[in-house]
Each structure stands twice: as C-alpha cells, then as structure tokens.
Design a protein around this nucleic acid. Structure first.
Lengths: 229, 229
DNA sequence: ACCTGAACACCGTTCAAGT
DNA sequence: ACCTGAACACCGTTCAAGT
C-alpha cells in the first residue's frame, strides 16, 4: 500500500541509476537488506526487474551503489563539522557523526565490511581523517597505523562478537551450562546485583562504542607524543 | 577428481551431523564459502542434498555448525596455552593463537561477525578470556568493557574497512582523483619514498593487527591500574 | 535509448515414497 | 531410521523482441 514509493500518482518517472539506488536504500531501511531483490526494486519503481540492468551492471553493483549512497550521506554530515581544535575531539566528533548516520541504515555496516570494493566515498572519508590526524601532529606513518587500528570504528561501527548481556540474567541458564561458564556467570550476577533493574539490555552500545574508541584515541595520542620531538 | 572427499573407495559411510559439518568446512576452505551449497555438500558425501536435512535443520544451521567447528578448533588451541604470568602477555598470546586458526579458515571470520547466534563455543571462549582478565586484576565491570572494546579483535580478526595500500602507488591514480585525496596521496608517496621497494602490499596485516591490539591492551591496563586501589 | 516477456540455470526446501 | 526423486517457489541473469 503506502509503501516505499507510492506508485500511482507519479506518472512513471523514467528510471535512473540514482532512483534505482535510492529505492534499494529505502527498501533496505524499511524491510531489511535481505528483502532487496531485483524484482522487488523493480516493483517499487513500477518497472520490471530486467529494466534495472540498464542502470546498474548487476545486483552486486546495486548493493555497492546503495552502500555508497550511505557513505555519501556520512561524508555530507561530516564535512560540516569543525575540523579545528584538539585532534582527539575533532576525530571523536567525526566518528560519532558517522555512527549516527549508520544507525539510520543498520544494514549498511555489514555490507560495508563485507565488500572490499573501496568506493571513492569511503576513500574520501579516510582521506579527511588522515587530514585531521596530520593537523593534530601525526606523522604519516602513525596516521597509517591509526587507520588500521581504528578499522571499522573509524567509520562508526564495531563488530560485536557476542553480546554478553544476551543471555539474560545468569540464573536463566541451565545449571550444567552455567557450570561451564564460571567467569561469565559471575560477571553477570555481579552486574545484576549492582544494578538489579537492568538484567537484559544492560550493555549500552553507544557507551561501549565510545569506551573502545577513547581507548584507541588515548593510545594513539600517547604514541604521537612519544614520536614527536 | 581428488577432491575434498574422494568418494569411491569409501563404502558409503553413513552420514552424520559431524561429517556434514566437516565437509562444509573443507569445501569452504578449498573453494570459498560461496560454493558451499546443499547440493554441493551432498555431492561431496555421495548423497543427495535432501539427505542433509536429517542431520542439520537447514542451510543456516549448517553454516552455524561449520563456524562452530572452527571456534572449537580455536578453543582447543587456546586451552593449551599458559594462563599464568602477566595478563597482557597471556591475553595477547591467546588472541594471536585464535587469529592463527582463523587464518586457516578465512571465510569463518565474516560468518562469525555476521550471524549473531552466540554459539556455546564462542561464549566459552569469552568466558576464559574474562577469567584471564580477572586473574590480572580486572573488576568484572572493566572486564565487561574490555570485551566490548576488543570486539572481534578478541577472537583474532578485525574489520579492515579498506586497505590504504590497495591503490598501489600514489601516481597510479588519475590526476583528477589524486587531487581530491591530498592526504592519502601524500601519505602514500611518503611511504613510497621511505621504502621504494614496497609500493604494493606495504601494509602487513599481522603487524597492524598487533599494533591495534597492543593499543587496546595498554589502554585497558591503564584503566585497570586507575581503578584498582 | 530504454524497457519488457519469456526462458534458463541454480538455489533452498517440501513432501510423499521408498528401504 | 535414514535416504531419495520429483516438484515448487524464488532467485539473478540472458536474450530477442518490442517502442
């Protein structure tokens, strides 16, 4: 019905690469990336799946293009930020702004880390980041290490391997399982004791992201000072 | 031909969950994860694709099981290590051992970060890691932050967003592109100048991984000291 | 030039039927 | 119980044909 692109009133706008990619992003945002199929994107545009091939090479190119649109959105948000002052503040602010955009397109981070394809927008983002580091007194060598050390965190997301809070409270586990996990069980029960209100969802993603980020930024600053005459 | 499981001499061993999963791992190791299909795994075992459904619920379960096999391999490697001494050394050694296993199954890290499914083996790995941190003087709270901060690095891999060395030497870029990337171009040319031999492949993954890891471990130790009476 | 209908190859999966 | 053949729904994609 009133779905992504309400298809009736518009008098069949001609397709374009831009419209195709924007539609893919919209579908992914609303229904998840796994529902983005050539047929579905075509439907949403009032066209056949096969028509898309005049504007994108194939499905891989469509997904690459959709991700690139998101990174462009990041770059636009980030270009407006103040690049002066303390480098740690500038870098931190920039990375958290990138994160805010990615939180609006939750499917994007997985694709971003999956497809090696280094899009111009991704490279541009990193170029500006190196600029901030240089302005903050980093050698090119240390800036280079910094990019690697930050990894996906540079762009505002990190790969959580498992959510320690997922299991709920410690005593929800079967005893024979709990016996095999003495440290996690103890950790969970201490947290539950300290803050009984929050058994589930006691890991605040944003807080944890910032904790890890600050750890890296502090460490990098220490290396910077150590290598600067 | 002499493929993953040479199918002739063996007198049709009965299928089992274990054999199905091991075959999936072997195919992924040799030909890539994208070649692992139900039909292919069946073929390799001299059975029909449909027979697999008696041993795994569906393809998702098969992939989960295959990843779990790899994590079990990590746990076996890691259980043999010395858990005593300096906590940083113990944790570092353990993480690099996990990394060594993952490098033998390069497809696994992507699946590991993709599927939220917190397998018993993954949870077990983290339980032991928390144990090391506790023994090193971490509070449960700080150990918890540490897990988040390490993220996928705890298990030996990190999400590289793009390889700054991928573009080759700086002057291989078209000039109008290079003009848009002043900082990366300068970074690349300085590296090329300092070490002319290595234009491509000048980022050593292992070195960069350890750099980022040490940054985090140092930062965590500093926090530990700051919070310990 | 842009769009389409029919068709193809290849998936995961169901189900009734075999032993 | 374990395994299988045929079939189904749903992909991405090719291609010749339309305007």
């Amino acid at each position: 019905m009133g779905d992504v692109a309400s298809s009736r009133s518009e008098q069949r706008l001609p397709l374009s690469r831009e419209r195709v990619l924007r539609t893919a992003v919209a579908i992914a945002d609303e229904h998840g990336i796994e529902t983005v199929t050539m047929r579905r994107v075509g439907d949403e545009l009032g066209a056949e799946a096969m028509s898309l091939y005049h504007h994108v090479a194939n499905k891989d190119a469509l997904l690459d293009g959709a991700v690139d649109l998101v990174v462009r959105e990041i770059n636009e948000a980030v270009d407006e930020l103040d690049a002066g002052g303390d480098w740690q503040v500038a870098v931190r602010t920039r990375i958290l702004a990138a994160r805010a955009v990615l939180l609006r397109h939750r499917w994007a981070s997985r694709l971003l880390s999956t497809r090696a394809a280094t899009s111009p927008e991704v490279v541009r983002y990193h170029d500006r980041l190196v600029g901030l580091l240089r302005a903050g007194g980093f050698s090119f060598d240390l800036a280079h290490h910094a990019l690697h050390a930050l990894g996906s965190r540079a762009m505002g997301f990190s790969q959580e391997l498992f959510d320690p809070g997922d299991g709920g409270s410690a005593d929800s586990l079967p005893p024979e399982v709990a016996a095999e996990l003495p440290n996690l069980v103890a950790m969970l029960s201490e947290i539950a004791h300290d803050d009984p209100a929050s058994t589930l969802g006691w890991c605040d993603d944003q807080t944890e992201f910032e904790f890890g980020l600050d750890l890296l930024l502090d460490g990098l600053d220490r290396r910077r000072v150590a290598t600067t005459p």
